[in-house]
């Protein structure tokens, strides 16, 4: 693998019952590339949490996953409402999810903390009324 490989996904915000398709596809692609199971698990969970957040909180968005010899980079972009207080959103248990979302098992306020835990580096940029950009990196070396 000498060149970077990039996978692009449009994440549909309309139907969160099928949400997670991009993450499931990434898992498959990484398996074909021979990435180790532990790394695949970390990348797919982090991406799924981000994907679900875009669907639930931002009406959908876009995702790019880049694989190089050194690292896997997951970039998520949405044009949703943005995050008012990122430090607060990063705390375990903080959630603004609706009751309807909670009946599905989401809304524990653990998604962003999981994304941080399972990746080596995570950066959030968000502007109210404009949207949210999240970049996560997992080292391969």
């Amino acid at each position: 693998m000498s060149e970077a490989l990039t996978f692009h996904f449009d994440v549909d915000g309309a139907d969160f019952t099928s949400a997670g398709q991009a993450s499931v596809q990434v898992k498959k692609n990484l398996r074909l590339l021979g990435i180790s199971p532990d790394i695949i698990r970390r990348v797919s969970i982090a991406m799924y949490e981000g994907e679900i957040n875009m669907v639930i909180h931002a009406g959908g968005g876009e995702a790019d996953v880049t694989v190089t010899e050194e690292e896997i980079v997951i970039s998520l972009r949405d044009h949703g409402p943005g995050i008012k207080d990122i430090d607060q959103a990063m705390q375990e248990g903080f959630s603004t999810a609706s009751d309807r979302i909670r009946t599905l098992g989401f809304g524990a306020g653990m998604g962003l903390p999981n994304m941080k835990r399972y990746t080596d580096h995570m950066e959030i940029r968000s502007e109210l009324g404009k949207g949210t950009d999240i970049t996560m990196r997992v080292n391969l070396k």
């Binding site: 993450s23 799924y48 989401f106």
Partner: peptide, 14 residues
């Protein structure tokens, strides 16, 4: 929990 999201979670969390 028995909605469809459990399938994705089980698969991704392995």
């Amino acid at each position: 929990m028995s909605n469809v999201n459990i399938v994705a979670v089980a698969s991704l969390a392995d």
